[in-house]
Amino acid sequence: MPSDDAVQSDLEQQGVFFSTLNRFYNWGRRSSVWPMAFGLACCAIEMMATGLSRYDLARFGAELFRASPRQADLMIVAGTVTKKMVPQVVRLYNQMPEPRYVISMGACATSGGPFRDGYNVVRGIDLYIPVDVYVPGCPPRPEALLHALMTLQSQIDRQNLKQVRWYGKKARPQSQDFPVPSYGPHGLEIDGKLVDPVGSLPLISSYSSPMEGEQRRDQIEHPELVRVFPDMERELREETSASYAEALEGEDQHVRR
């Protein structure tokens, strides 16, 4: 079997096709990714535009938006995830059959975006479910979503059937359910513990990508670690006063001379 990609594509041009099971299987999966019809906010409109005639997601085999999570491979989190919506999003994700993928579309789903500091807004969906591809933009253009899908397809291509959890004899068909947060008096709770206080920063860390085992990263974000932006005005002031002092110095010399 040719392992060399160049030889293989040469042969393919002649009409001879070789494949490994792995490659064949992944080719099948990547060519018909079925996304879930799951729009949350503004980004969903661009997601719809991507699916329709002008951008035509069907060229990539992903035009079949399914209304049920049981029939979907891909969840495109398109829009702002609010604290009130998180339990539903996680539950939907848990209901999707494996292998499953997540594209976090737009600034909101990735980090909270423009609404990051709102009391009801989640600062990134990766605090609750693992994400494969992030798309920046507010909203991302349809082309960006297409690129995200292509990125996902190349990730699928790279998956090795011997290593993935959900294939083969030792398959664990459904990995453990992701914990569904519940509503508490001061924010979202997991197992009775406050994880996402309203009006403050989350107390849990984000998930790593599925390629890296869907583990929580070990850092915990603490409210004390709020980033402090440079005080632009003060710097400007210092700069101006420095140049002012320089000018004054020249003045002094002039007078002295």
Binding site: L40, A41, G79, T80, T82, K84, M85, Q88, P114, F115, D117, G118, Y119, N120, V121
Partner: peptide
């Protein structure tokens, strides 16, 4: 409330022009 994004509260923290894109 599933898309309650706190426009009004953020609007009070933004300057007038910053609210335009919101």
């Amino acid at each position: 409330g599933y898309l309650h994004r706190n426009h009004e509260q953020l609007g009070e923290a933004n300057s007038y022009l910053q609210n335009m894109p919101f």
